[in-house]
Amino acid sequence: MGQPVIQWQILSKMPEQLSEFYRQLFGWETNADNALGYRMVATGSERGIQGGIWPAAPEGRAMVTLYVEVENIAEQIERAIELGAQVVIPPQKLPDGDEMAVITDPEGLTFGLVKPARV
């Protein structure tokens, strides 16, 4: 099955404005009608991957993170550490059943690992 990049996420201090910006620019539609109020972004195409926008704290900073789907988060974390990664957010289960973690590569670039509940 490989280990594909399945989602991008924008962490933003102005999520509403960004939603509108990308809607006007690309026609991307945002839907936050879910229990976490998470802005799921649909690009309108079956090609490529979909994304989301999550609010950043005022004292925080904006960033974009790509999420790689894996079958076993814990095993991938261990492997990543062996290869020089560091754990930013340890594995955790989300309310929707997905599991995720965020790590940095040896250059310090941040990316996420996710195991969707359906896998």
Partner: peptide, 12 residues
Amino acid sequence: MKALPQRSDLRT
């Protein structure tokens, strides 16, 4: 996949 909690601040 839904919301993904993140660290929000890396400033010094």
